[in-house]
Each structure stands twice: as C-alpha cells, then as structure tokens.
Amino acid sequence: MQFMLILNETSEDFAQRNHPEQAQTYWGGWNAFIGAMAQAGVIVKGDGLMAPHAATTLRLRDGKRVVEDGPFADTKEQLGGYFVIEVPDLDAALDWAARAPSARTGSVELRPILPMPPA
C-alpha cells in the first residue's frame, strides 16, 4: 500500500540548507535517505519544498480572496518535503520514516494514501 511520508522540519533545519558550513551535512543526509529509498524502489513520487518564508496562503471568504504571506499555521515544525512510497504495511513505512533526517530533529507523519473510491 502507499503512504505519504510528511517530512516536518524545524527552523534550524531550514537554516542549514544554505549555511556555509552545515549545508553539506544537511544535503548529504537527505541524499543518502532518498538514495536508499530509490535503490529499494519504493518511491512513487516526492519533492522537497522551499522553506516556509516562500509560502503563500489563500482563503476565499465571502467570495473574496484573502492572501497571506507564510504558511497557514505558525508552528515549531513546518512541512519541508514529502514522499509517497509503496510498501507492504505500516511497519515497513515506519522503518523508512525512521531513516529520514527530519525524524531526528522534527518529525515524520505517515498517512495512507486514500484509495480511489469505486466509480
């Protein structure tokens, strides 16, 4: 079955992405994780996302657009990327989640992909 790994990172994690000394370690960690998943052939799709400063949130209220800068909620951890993986069950998905760099600093949420409703 398919799970989305929702990779949540801290502001320190996001800061590392462009940090002169830490960037290499940061990206090295992600590349190793993604490489291992790719080699095991479990990736269905996935992306990294720009940091929350680049987020824009829109709501329609009384037919009007309300546009705000930033993510929809100001929390300690923010979505940094996602992968959809194909594995036999939750335990296998948890094993992959445990290898994500953000599991150590932030968190990984696992959600089963909603099966297509019968037409």
Partner: peptide
C-alpha cells in the same frame, strides 16, 4: 482498519 497495520506478522518480526 485505515492506518495500514499488517495482519501478517513475519516469523522473524
């Protein structure tokens, strides 16, 4: 039912 728990536990688990 929904979270993807497996009912077939491998012997080595």
């Amino acid at each position: 039912r929904d979270a993807g728990l497996s009912f077939s536990l491998p012997e080595t688990y």
